[in-house]
Design a protein around this nucleic acid. Structure first.
Lengths: 139, 139
DNA sequence: CTATATCCTACTAAACCAATCGGAATTTGT
DNA sequence: ACAAATTCCGATTGGTTTAGTAGGATATAG
């Protein structure tokens, strides 16, 4: 998603180009990106010269949403997931420790929902500036 | 640990009794508890009538410490672990997303280090009160 | 001496996850 | 019409992790 955002002015971005730049296999990306498309995060353009585009502005993309789409619901233990989280409390005291996991879960979600794709782009720019500075020092 | 804390006045607590109450296998506990002992969380007394005791007061036991002892360092991805966290940044942009994981990691540690075993004991008591209330309503 | 415990070192089985594979469907450019 | 580029889909693999089991050694109270 970061790579897509960095190249959003250049038209559709092929998975091949992302794979090359990010040193990931195209096959692997091929498996992941369709989930983002189904969730309305990216738009796809098939055929030659096709590729992917962000469906929203980077400021409007929470990385929490991206993570949840790619990795499923964020839950440190199964019973803190909304769906399947009822069957574990037969055990004495289990629900006390469950409260801990609920707090952990909420805290994680708060963090990842407080960062947008645009925030990450800023980070990339900073990094590039730093790389240039190091280069200057060496020269 | 919660079970141990609940029975700390009754002398050494055997894993068998914990296993019965908490519906866990004694074998499984046998595997876990020695780690807590080595870390100075509990004291063990071998032989007949032996068992385990908390080595500190419940107020002084952070559940973050318990989790880290039993599960290892808390790190959402490998490269946010102090030791092995250097080799992944060959990838372009990787360190930008790493910042996210660092924030997640710190947030998790903050949560679990803000809760003590004593806090969980309070929760157990509340739960028991609730159970009694439900019982009363039915009667 | 015996029953009750902790202690230690493996081993097993299931789940999970990154990554691969083969091939079908779609579109652009010539 | 054709060829190249590209998304799309389902199945499979291989490695790691993790919950749980197993066997047997060691220590202590009564």
């Amino acid at each position: 998603m970061v790579d897509l955002a960095q190249h959003l002015t250049e038209g559709p971005v092929s998975l091949k180009s992302v794979a090359d730049r990010q040193k990931l296999s195209e096959r692997y990306l091929e498996q992941l990106v369709p989930d983002l498309r189904k969730a309305g995060m990216v738009k796809s353009i098939r055929g030659s010269q096709g590729g992917y585009l962000l469906a929203k502005k980077p400021e409007d993309i929470l990385i929490g949403d991206v993570i949840r789409i790619l990795e499923g619901p964020i839950a440190p233990v199964e019973c803190t997931d909304q769906k399947s989280g009822e069957d574990c409390c037969e055990k004495t005291n289990f629900c006390v420790t469950r409260e801990v996991w609920v707090k952990v879960r909420d805290s994680i979600n708060d963090v990842v929902d407080s960062i947008t794709l645009a925030d990450l782009l800023e980070g990339v720019e900073k990094e590039e500036v730093e790389r240039l500075n190091i280069f200057d020092e060496k020269a």
